[in-house]
Design a protein around this nucleic acid. Structure first.
Lengths: 236, 236
DNA sequence: AAAAAACGAGCGAGCGCTCGCTTTATATCC
DNA sequence: GGATATAAAGCGAGCGCTCGCTCGTTTTTT
């Protein structure tokens, strides 16, 4: 079994690591040459943007707010992006990229065990959104206001994780482990419970719920809903 | 059993009826005297606001957009609200009010039958959000940007529906119908599945899912998760 | 001293909102 | 019933301000 701590030990999702990836991806437009400088400043920019945008919305966050809070000047900001929308797309792109990387590679040992694979998917999704909480809140809440390109990216990313869940369910049904009338509908219902962890994280925290506890209870709820009604349960 | 059609027959949630209630509530600040005129114009204003705000966000919708699309002049708009924020609060207040009214009064016949009461709650919540879809999307998506008063209203409204679900679950556990390790956690998990219907309605529509079908599958999923694992199921 | 990075005043556009004015509906009088 | 007076409703140019963004200049690094 896994825990949030173990998840964090396996993946470097620090602001620096994430911004290094952003720099690679946008090397063409970022005008600052020295990587060390660029990464440090990107970190300040992204950190501040996530804070401000999650507080009052990306659109309501002015670039003057951003200069004041980040300590960088207006001109310095525009060495890293060529428009406010580009800044938005930088953050979104990184979120989608990490999702693909982390969720797209389930341990091979789970290939033949759909129950464990389902657990791994739910757990990993939850831990990932916990580790990059402000990033995911940003991507989720601003999605509507994305330029078309961004909206499509967000939609396809969501569909990918959904179909991964549906696959695990279908596999479980095929092996006689699960009883699910409609696997893709079940996946559609499971997704919002995963998203609720980061969308309403303040509420969960207020109730004293940790990521590990939420993961445990969510998995129990889902397993109760999909498991065959027989005497012997699949071992935890 | 119920259906979306029957729900609509029982509740008048037309734009006119809803705007009549808004007029009552804000009679003090609305400067237009004749109710017929006021209601008709409020309907135009709210309709347009919901369309534009749900397309690109309330904050990004300018009042000039609103004048063009609604056909009313700037001055005319300000006979109905004294600031853009007031317009927002008018819509939010109506959503919260209707939720209290419709969900707050379950049929008395269900008082002693927790399984039916749970079904009624889920179904009614779903049908309500279907009937007032743009209103709920608005309230949900703009929540973060609400003035403090509005955020508190939204939070307390959500907690109310959650505790109604938790009550039905707890009642079912007490009567030996349900097996739920933690009823309030279960309610917390159920809520986002309800909200997903209107938050991602376009996706559900694309899959050909009707409100009745979604209600049926959601209820089946929840019941499978909470029902005691015995031979005889509570009759549908 | 050359190159890289950061600076921040200033631009035009667009914002929420106001207010003096016009148009439309209703009440009053002969 | 038409003329007149009053109230109600609607209008939209324009105000002060903030927005995203630019660019000539200054500071820092090499």
């Amino acid at each position: 079994m896994s825990s949030f701590q173990e998840f964090q030990a396996r993946h470097d999702l620090s602001m620096e690591a994430l911004c290094a990836r952003i720099l690679e991806r946008h090397a063409a437009t970022i005008r600052v040459k020295k990587p060390a400088v660029a990464i440090a400043n990107l970190a300040r920019i992204v950190e501040t943007t996530l804070t401000l945008a999650n507080r009052k919305g990306f659109h309501s966050m002015s670039l003057r707010d951003l200069t004041e809070q980040s300590g960088l000047s207006m001109g310095a900001l525009y060495a890293y992006f060529d428009s406010k929308d580009t800044l938005l797309m930088m953050i979104l792109g990184q979120v989608v990229g990490v999702v693909e990387e982390v969720l797209g590679r389930p341990p091979e040992a789970l290939a033949t065990d759909p129950a464990s694979r389902l657990r791994w998917l739910l757990e990993t999704h939850l831990y990932l959104t916990e580790a990059m909480h402000p990033w995911f809140v940003f991507a989720y809440m601003e999605a509507k206001a994305f330029p078309k390109e961004g909206r499509e990216l967000a939609v396809s990313s969501e569909m990918m994780t959904e179909s991964m869940i549906a696959d695990a369910l279908a596999d479980g049904v095929a092996r006689g482990l699960f009883a699910v009338p409609d696997v893709s509908m079940a996946a559609v219902l499971i997704k919002p419970m995963l998203q609720d962890w980061y969308v309403k994280r303040a509420k969960h925290r207020r109730r004293g719920v940790t990521p590990d506890l939420y993961a445990e209870q969510l998995i129990a709820f889902v397993e109760a809903a999909v498991r065959l009604r027989t005497m012997q349960a699949a071992g935890r």
